[in-house]
Design a protein around this nucleic acid. Structure first.
Length: 878
RNA sequence: GCGGGCGUGGUGGAAUUGGUAGACACGCCAGAUUUAGGUUCUGGUGUCGCAAGGCGUGGGGGUUCAAGUCCCUCCGCCCGCACCA
């Protein structure tokens, strides 16, 4: 028996069935138990799972299994982020329905996830395209609308004229639609918006409370929210069209007001539009501005250009000081007021602009160490703080004082009966436009009536169900083309009216799924008691690519849901800890065509020999040479993909899981290699053999702990219990790679103890080896659950390891009687000292000075100083 | 430009948060066993040196009894945002 290999694929299926039949991974509704909610970002059902999923879900599963063993009531659910454009595109290509494609994929991927042996509570599974999910999303929409958290406005959108749909900014590539390739147009459309800006300050401030989030994500969100303190200044205008008398300008640098040499407005600014009506040249310039500037490359190379409108602005502190008003291509309509005052000395863009149009450059802030009399601006603006110069009553002040002084003066100064300057806080964050002209999304539950306007669908009429009889043989939104679906009577006046045919952005679906998992079958969106118990998510795990959108939207949703009574009132942050895992990367292989273009090759088609820089790749079939490319993220286009199914079928899920946890720290990219998988597989067989050896030793499952233990036995117990302690701690800290290393080390220790022939009866070594083996199996349980379960049974247990508590530590074994520490002379290691752990400083010092190697180095010299850090180190200074 | 991160053997990476640098794994070398099939076992493996011993965590400088870890500075790489007034 012991010589047989462990047949992972076969035994894994067995244990998966046993777990499923026992139903042990369903979260309990016993709210008196301590809870732990472990969640990995749910997948989009694109077709098949990939190695990124394997890594993500393995990490979550290790934590879930570990927490369960530690006595927590664990919620570890899974679902599907199932609405979205790919399903519609697939429907168009395959002449099928998006729902059929989506649910097919879910079926496939669910089977794949099950083959990984994840401890998921499948009883809570849902897809966001299930009516029973999106009906509640519609209810949330209506309640948010009622609370004033949703509004409708006309806004500019990216419009793909071929696909007849709105595109998100991410879907516009170099000014062209990512799918159709058509030049994207800007269109004014009336859209629904979520008032995320109402929470801007809270979303920013609360970032400080998210201690268990990566610093990077918090910074990215803070930058995205983009809070700034400034002053709104009203400039009096002369010669403006339509008798316009003033222009509002937002600035964060009112201190530089005396350095102003022009005013600039965005091409879309109402004043610009008004001025352009009687000025074809200006109109053409504005049009040019609108067209440019979609791609990153454009922005980098774009020169600062402007057009003098002929309008004059009067300086707030001196009405005789007249500044030209330009339309400028670098002023954005949707930030601040769409208008700036240009201070060339203090802003690089303004300086570039001023040099081009030969406008004055007046230095107003001098560096603290510069001579104010001679300080001048050359090619670079001075943007840092300093001392005010050339600024009348501000001269000599520091930047901050000057800011305050200007703000105070302008708030007292009047223009047309109201203050010229108002202190303002400005955010970069925009409200979230959620209208999409697509079919495969959650219908927005409102009705448009000619008489009553926008009328919300009554609660009783929910859900607004997507019609199944739609066609995808044309572009645009199939809901618009449906003959009857949109026709409905107005709930208020009863006259014929029309349903909203836009659907919600799919980011809405994923903004509250974590809350729905806490009561997936409730008749209301959430069950407050369940939500109160389970939320927040204790550990959320997913990719960094969601650092802003998904994670910010979810934080907004938690607040909005609390306000609408769907979450406990004090619930704000949905995810108390966030972990962003690295990608799975793989070498890519290619051959070159005659014109030098690469033809990418699947890894299994390539054979590699040699090592390091001498590696040679050839085509398996023909032996033709193959080029080895970079190590990059697994992707279909580069074909550097390894299919999880293939690995699980030949090596088993435990092997894939173990490899994913080994070596690379979880936040860093992991390189998938054949050698690494083989190593993991060898380790599985090694554990299997080790258990065989332990069983042969003959120590019974039920054997009592002997009264006396030999030194070897005691030493093994010490190692075992220390390892249990450390592996547990490292799992909690998500340092899986370190846990893995400790387990390797432990297996080495157990194996070497087990191979000792000297273990006589009565020494207790047999018993200690048996204990160590059982502890080993319990420790690998969260990581390689099938192998562990199999070994657990082999060791004589007829209970499930998956239900077994984490081993209890014997604290006294964590501390050794003796310890070996380094002895340094002048900071260089010259010897080692093994001494009682409890030894005093003077005992350690005496023993260290007596060491042979030390006295030789000292050559009789008297030490000047001896530093003793008990249990750490001795350093003798001569 | 702004922000975040990283730099340790041939490779992935450890290092109790200032205390024996290179744990563990991969790879490689030598030997043993078996030699059909991702074998197994033993030993070695930072570097220079026959050795004693030097030198070693991107470079340089500093603090300290002691620095991979802290400070300054320079270099290199990766990621995110980007005309944000």
């Amino acid at each position: 028996m012991a010589n047989e290999r462990y047949n992972a694929p076969e035994r894994e299926k067995h244990w998966q069935k046993v777990w499923a039949d026992a139903g042990i991974f369903a979260a309990s509704n016993d709210y008196s138990k301590p809870k732990c909610y472990v969640l990995e970002m749910f997948p989009y059902p694109s077709g098949r799972i990939h190695m990124g999923h394997v890594r993500n879900y393995t990490m979550g599963d290790v934590l879930a299994r570990y927490k369960r063993a530690r006595g927590f009531n664990v919620l570890h659910p899974m679902g599907w982020d199932a609405f979205g454009m790919p399903a519609e595109n697939a429907a168009m290509e395959r002449r099928t329905h998006p729902g059929i494609w989506t649910y097919d994929n879910i079926g496939t991927m669910k089977a794949q996830l099950k083959s990984m042996g994840l401890s998921l509570d499948w009883s809570r599974e849902f897809a966001t395209c299930d009516v029973n999910y999106y009906r509640h999303q519609q209810k949330l929409f209506l309640d948010f609308l009622d609370k004033g958290l949703i509004y409708r406005k006309s806004s500019k959108v990216n419009w793909d004229p071929v696909d007849q749909t709105v595109l998100a900014n991410e879907q516009v590539i170099d000014g062209h639609g990512w799918r159709s390739g058509a030049p994207v147009e800007q269109r004014e459309l009336t859209q629904w918006f979520f008032k995320i800006t109402a929470f801007a300050d809270d979303l920013l401030n609360a970032l400080d409370t998210l201690e268990n989030w990566p610093e990077k994500v918090r910074t990215m969100q803070a930058n995205w929210i983009g809070k700034s303190h400034g002053l709104l200044i009203r400039w009096a205008l002369v010669n403006a069209p339509d008798g316009e008398s003033e222009l509002k300008v937002y600035t964060t640098r009112p201190d530089t007001l005396f350095g102003a040499s022009f005013v600039a407005i965005a091409a879309d600014h109402p004043l610009a539009k008004a001025a352009a009506r009687n000025n074809p040249e200006l109109a053409a310039f504005c049009e040019e501005c609108r067209r440019a500037g979609t791609s990153v490359a454009d922005l980098e190379t774009a020169e600062k250009k402007g057009f003098d409108t002929g309008i004059i602005a009067r300086h707030p502190f001196d009405s005789s000081w007249k500044l030209p008003v330009y339309v400028a291509n670098f002023v954005l309509m949707d930030y601040g007021t769409g208008a700036i005052f240009g201070c060339p000395a203090g802003d690089q863009r303004d300086l570039d602009f001023a040099r081009r149009y030969e406008l004055p450059v007046i230095p107003v802030v001098a560096p603290p160490d510069a001579d104010p009399a001679t300080f001048a601006i050359g090619r670079e603006a001075y943007t840092a703080d300093g001392v005010m110069i050339n600024s009348q009553f501000l001269d000599g002040m520091d930047t901050e004082t000057a800011f305050e002084t200007v703000a105070n003066r302008l708030s007292e100064q009047q223009l047309g009966g109201t203050p010229v300057g108002t202190r303002t806080i400005n955010f970069r964050l925009r409200d979230w436009g959620i209208s999409r002209q697509r079919y495969w999304g959650c219908p927005i539950p409102v009705i448009h009536c000619e008489d009553c306007g926008v009328v919300p669908v009554c609660d009783a009429d929910l859900p607004v169900v997507l019609p199944d009889d739609v066609t995808f043989d044309n572009t645009g939104n199939p809901l618009d083309r449906h003959p009857t679906w949109a026709r409905v009577d107005c709930p208020q006046c009863g006259k014929p009216a029309r349903r909203e045919t836009d659907t919600m952005d799919t980011f809405v679906d994923s903004s509250w799924y974590f809350a729905r998992f806490t009561s997936p079958h409730a008749d209301t969106p959430t069950d407050i008691q369940a939500a109160d118990y389970w939320l927040p998510v204790d550990q959320y795990i997913g990719g960094i690519e969601h650092a802003i959108l998904h994670l910010l939207y979810s934080r907004f949703y938690a607040r909005a849901m609390a306000e609408a009574g769907h979450l406990p009132p004090d619930m704000k942050e949905p995810f108390s800890a966030l972990f962003t895992q690295g990608m799975v990367v793989h070498e890519c292989y290619f051959q070159k065509t005659e014109d030098g273009k690469p033809i990418w090759l699947e890894p299994e088609k390539v054979h590699i020999e040699g090592e390091g820089g001498n590696r040679v790749a050839t085509l398996v079939e023909t032996g033709d040479p193959v080029c080895i490319g970079d190590i990059i993220k697994m992707s279909k286009s580069k074909k550097n993909i390894v299919d999880p199914d293939d690995i699980i079928a030949s090596y088993g899920a435990d092997c894939a899981r173990w490899f994913m946890l080994s070596d690379s720290p979880p936040e860093r990219d992991v390189i998938w290699t054949e050698a690494g998988v083989a190593g993991a597989s060898r380790f599985i067989q090694r554990i299997w053999r080790l258990i065989g050896i332990v069983l042969e030793k003959g120590c019974e499952h039920s054997a009592q702990k002997p009264d006396t233990l030999c030194d070897e036995a005691l030493a093994l117990r010490r190692v075992a219990h220390k390892t249990v302690h450390q592996v547990g701690q490292n799992i909690e800290d998500l340092r899986f790679n370190v846990s893995v290393a400790q387990l390797y080390e432990f297996v080495n220790a157990v194996q070497s103890a087990a191979s000792q022939e000297a273990s006589q009866k009565g020494s207790g070594l047999d018993w200690a080896i048996r204990e160590a083996a059982e502890l080993l199996i319990q420790m690998i349980g969260p990581m390689m659950p099938h192998l562990a379960e199999e070994c657990w049974a082999r060791l004589g247990y007829n209970t499930l390891l998956a239900e077994h508590p984490w081993p209890a530590l014997e604290e006294e074994l964590l501390v050794d009687d003796t310890i070996t520490i380094a002895v340094q002379v002048n900071g260089k290691r010259r010897g080692e000292l093994t001494i009682a752990t409890s030894a005093s400083r003077s005992e350690i010092e005496t023993a260290a000075l007596k060491l042979e190697g030390i006295s030789r180095v000292l050559e009789g010299k008297m030490p000047k100083k001896v530093i003793v850090v008990p249990q750490r180190i001795v350093n003798i200074v001569v």
